[in-house]
Nucleic acid binder design. Structure first.
Length: 243
DNA sequence: AGTCATGTTGACGA
DNA sequence: CTCGTCAACATGAC
């Protein structure tokens, strides 16, 4: 379900509850959520794949992981992990991770590493990558402390667009191409957002789950790559391997 | 019908 | 203590 852009969509969908008071709380999460009752939500934020419900002195962090879902003003049959009721609606989260972050939310997150944040700082990503020069690009691109919000779909699409083999070693990729990869992580995320809103995301995949290269028509390679062993789809003819 | 995956954390052993 | 590996979570697409 979620890479960064999907969480941005979630944030947009709950805007009707900004400034609203939580009048009922329930759910099968193990953490103490009773403290949310009668509190007012002053903001919804996202940091990569984290969805943040901000109250005055603490924040509820929701992570949908692989299978998490939510419903707004609707319910599924299964029990919600967290359900927030308002005087004119409700939000229900299922099979997700729920945690509380105390104090000011800004003390918990560096917004400049989130590829969809207004404060996204590509220069900072470049500096972080210089310290990881012996890693494979397919691993570092999924590092949430560098490219918060980027997931395995975005990884595959960005590397295909940039003509870079996923097993390329970061330190061996020319700076110009490295900059392009960094920029594309943010650019592609916004295109992902645009297409997902139109329910036509899959139609625009050029690498993820593909079996043939649309550029040269040769068969794609599918392989679990890097330390993370996540699926990579790539064309060894069009994507350059730097080792 | 069985397999597999858009993700992350924490436990455990070496 | 650190590193590496793996289980756990649990839904739905194909």
């Amino acid at each position: 379900m979620p890479e960064g852009p999907s969480i941005v969509i979630l944030k947009e969908e709950v805007q009707q509850f900004t400034g609203k008071k939580v009048i009922s709380v329930s759910g099968n999460t193990s953490i103490d959520i009773s403290r949310l009752k009668d509190k007012t939500i002053h903001d919804f934020k996202t940091w990569g794949k984290h969805f943040l419900i901000c109250f005055d002195s603490f924040t509820v962090k929701i992570h949908l992981l692989m299978f998490g879902t939510y419903r707004i003003n609707e319910r599924k049959i299964s029990q919600p992990r967290l359900s927030l009721g308002f005087d004119d609606g409700e939000i229900n989260f299922y099979t997700c991770s729920v945690k509380i972050l105390e104090g000011n939310i800004n003390s918990h997150y560096d917004w400049s590493v989130d590829v969809m944040n207004d404060d996204w700082n590509p220069k900072k990503a470049q500096i972080s990558l210089e310290k990881m020069s012996d890693k494979m690009i397919c691993d570092v691109i999924l590092d949430q402390d560098i490219f918060s919000g980027v997931g395995n779909i975005i990884k595959n699409e960005v590397l295909y667009r940039c003509y870079i083999h996923p097993e390329s070693i970061v330190g061996k990729i020319p700076p110009e191409e490295m900059s392009q990869i960094i920029a594309e992580c943010s650019t592609y995320s916004f295109e992902f957002l645009y297409w997902k809103k139109k329910f036509e995301l899959k139609k625009h995949w050029e690498a993820y789950t593909k079996s043939v290269c649309l550029r040269c028509n040769l068969p794609f390679h599918k392989k679990q790559t890097g330390e993370r062993k996540r699926r990579s789809f790539f064309c060894t003819n069009c994507q350059k391997l730097y080792t």
